[in-house]
Design a protein around this nucleic acid. Structure first.
Lengths: 156, 156
DNA sequence: CCATATAACATGTATATACATATTATTATG
DNA sequence: CATAATAATATGTATATACATGTTATATGG
């Protein structure tokens, strides 16, 4: 019983149902929307708060190390920090002897902003955890952690 | 034993470790990077292939329905289809009597592109599934599905 | 039927993201 | 030590994403 000769639409249906790229992005969009709305009073986007939190947790941190932590391109970090620098939430400085390297820290305004935003973050986090249930969250976080460690290819 | 009076950095460390927004986005970035690289020969981004697959699975589909399926803003869909329309991978048409509504379909070139891209997609999908392991994938997909159904707030 | 509210889609603006490439500084090599 | 290779960051360009707002068409109330 040959199952081949499938229509393009059937192939698409089967692929989209299991596509980890589609579903991870769709889930991330839905979650981000909840956080963005909760954070609106702070004037921060969810992505910006994440960046501030990582800097706060790891400061002083080099641009490149931040890119690694975020699993993002360093050119993305270069630009992502701009609105935060413009609002004086981050300090950028040459700490090392290597003059190519720039390090980031929370400014005092950045710390104040984090203190203000974290309660809003907690509201969103609690809301999502409650809606998903602890069991699902306990399954989701390790899966996402594992995904974020995906290598460039199959290291056979 | 008062645990309060925590430094901003400590708060940030604790929050970022469990933040569902941060981790969902970071995981989605990592996964998207794998798919984008596998799809490079097709000239499609992973997001564009997802859109083509959803249209292929549900055609003809209205812009608004597509936005709902993608858990994205309809203004995002308005723009996301532009590069695909420019490459003639999608047809857009007024099907219904309501002249506001536009419906999308795969064009014949869109079908050819899907047939060409799905094997590349399968390579990426298989790579990610193999690296994560079936158990993790079976945990991840339902979690992401649940996340994508997050409501606007707590519907108590 | 007309005025108004609402719905569907598009556009303005801002940020997020990545690849190709440029710039500058450091390291390695002959 | 001078030059070539490499590393860290920035910029050009394109797409992804969302909110505020605009446009046009349909629906609704009087």
């Amino acid at each position: 019983m040959e199952a081949s000769e499938q229509s393009t639409s059937d192939l698409a249906k089967q692929a989209i149902q299991v596509c980890l790229c589609f579903h991870s992005r769709k889930g991330a969009r839905a979650i981000t929307q909840v956080f963005d709305r909760a954070l609106a009073p702070s004037g921060l986007k969810a992505t910006q708060l994440s960046l501030l939190m990582v800097v706060g947790a790891r400061q002083p941190i080099k641009i490149g190390a931040l890119a690694d932590d975020l699993v993002t391109d360093s050119t993305t970090v270069s630009r992502a920090i701009k609105p935060l620098l413009a609002r004086n939430l981050l300090d950028i400085e040459q700490l090392s002897g290597d003059r190519r390297i720039k390090s980031l820290r929370l400014s005092s305004e950045g710390r104040r902003m984090l203190d203000l935003a974290i309660p809003l973050w907690q509201t969103a986090q609690t809301q999502v955890v409650r809606q998903l249930g602890n069991t699902m969250v306990q399954a989701l976080l390790p899966g996402l952690e594992a995904a974020s460690r995906l290598g460039p290819a199959n290291p056979d």
